[in-house]
Design a protein around this nucleic acid. Sequence first.
DNA 1: GCCAACGTTGGC
DNA 2: GCCAACGTTGGC
Length: 138
Amino acid sequence: MARASWLVKSEPSTYSWSKLVKEGTAVWDGVRNFEARNNLRAMKKGDVVLFYHSNDGKDVVGVARVKREAYQDPTTKDDWSVVDLEPVKPLARSVSLDEMRGIKALANMSLLKKSRLSVSPVTKDELDAVLAAAKTKL
DNA sequence: GCCAACGTTGGC
DNA sequence: GCCAACGTTGGC
């Protein structure tokens, strides 16, 4: 099967793209939603992950990838998972929520349909459409 | 800062 | 196993 891709959301005030770039890696902790957790667990090393800023910006700003596959969330003893992410490259131009709403290929995108899901799958077509809008090639 | 939407929790 | 209450998220 082809490589999967994903989208993660973060409030810039909590964890921003620039912080990920600065630190070079991020432990994606704090996910407390079953569906999001299942998505984390489905990630494979090297999968592409779009990085979206919620609340402040409301746009996709960068491309990351999975550095380490799901493991026990170190911040809790409960059954939650984290992955490690690393930055790949920033988008040449960010793609806003409004813009994505206007792109036909993204009509069924999980980000738009289930706006509160913090870790969501992205199809190949959706990834291509976002990257095209961002004028960015991987 | 407000509020609607939605997921989770807990009482029954 | 249902459902009301609660907490959180995220767009506006």
